[in-house]
Design a protein around this nucleic acid. Sequence first.
DNA 1: GCTGCTTTGTGAACGTGTGCACGAGTGCCT
DNA 2: AGGCACTCGTGCACACGTTCACAAAGCAGC
Lengths: 228, 228
Amino acid sequence: MAPERTRRRIPDATVARLPVYLRILTEQGDEGVDNISSERLAELGGVNAAKVRKDLSYLGSYGTRGVGYEVAYLVYQIRRELGLTHDWPVVIVGAGNLGQALAGYGGFGERGFPVAGIVDIDEAKVGSVLSGVRVRHIDELPQIVRTKRASIGVVATPASAAQDAADRLVRAGVTSILNFAPVVLAVPRAIEVRKVDLAVELQILSYHEQRRAGGAIHAVGTTRPASA
Amino acid sequence: MAPERTRRRIPDATVARLPVYLRILTEQGDEGVDNISSERLAELGGVNAAKVRKDLSYLGSYGTRGVGYEVAYLVYQIRRELGLTHDWPVVIVGAGNLGQALAGYGGFGERGFPVAGIVDIDEAKVGSVLSGVRVRHIDELPQIVRTKRASIGVVATPASAAQDAADRLVRAGVTSILNFAPVVLAVPRAIEVRKVDLAVELQILSYHEQRRAGGAIHAVGTTRPASA
DNA sequence: GCTGCTTTGTGAACGTGTGCACGAGTGCCT
DNA sequence: AGGCACTCGTGCACACGTTCACAAAGCAGC
């Protein structure tokens, strides 16, 4: 009867895939699918079936042999494990191009991450309204975090302002940060940070493009420039 | 004399970190730093020093024992390895919130990924100008890809249109895709796809928040709903 | 040139993640 | 009731990634 105190730790790689399964399962549920096999789920998610089963087994034994997984129930379990049973208000720092796009992107609210507020340090931007959310001054951050109970902050500032934004978020009481600025943020150990860097993604693609193109075609020896 | 034909394969994990080193090195170079140790680079990049050395060793033995790495030379080597010695024009499909933000974000061009064009399927959006780039109709995609020599495509459409966008990009001749839509794209094996999913990132943060909050506080038994 | 200090490059140990293969459980059909 | 087809859950082996630890190599000072 007692809730499980000894929460089994779920591997990072699995945590990263659960949201994908969740989305697929939700879609399948909407299409009227009641049961789904690991094989089918793997196909839709672009992964290996054994991996799907192992991932799901960390949540508990929620499948039925010979049948598969009950979609609705699995959705419920994944949502519970990911903490998606209630909303997580998000506060955005930086009302530039990206901040505006994020605030305007309705997908956040729908998926349980309503925009609690968006702030900027530039007085000129304060007061303007983006898709129903009014930009407020960064000094109001602590108040927004407190009243809206926001625990996730998004850094959408230029690189030069990112560390300051992160410091302010931490001081305001935020415990998780999603960082879009191309900087490694220094934060207390207890704060969870995830980074999304578009330039890095493009450069990784560039590596593969270049590799494909024949690799070392203009790789001229290893002549060291100037120096020495 | 002959360029190295047998290109050593660089581990994915390393490729993903090289852009980070590159950015740090470029910054340090701008600040007048000539030499840098793996220790310092590790500190700035938030990683382990041994990892830095191992990563860099895949490029060749470009360090000097007792001294460190020559910043300018290392920048050159990483850029060469990542294929950043020339520009990689990028074509964006989808002129919604995200597409606009991406086109407007100057950082791409600066880092060697100029926006070759942005297209949309919606006639109403065609013709409008976003930060100097005119939105064109998606039917012009093949022509843009050909004339601008774009090999990287960005999918910035809603989920429902993403697969179609990817198909069109592939048909137009693009060989790498950066996908922002929350969908697993089906593409030919030869096409390199990278995915950026904001909702997934937030859900991973949610998992950690929920875990921090005490985990299974409302985890009431394992009563299965309806079924059976 | 020799000594001592610094820092690289890498072998080896360890940990994490992946995928196969198969036992075990479930439902259906006869 | 028994047999069969199907699918889960997981032990095991392997691949990949990370970290430690240390020999090799360079530099500076005498």
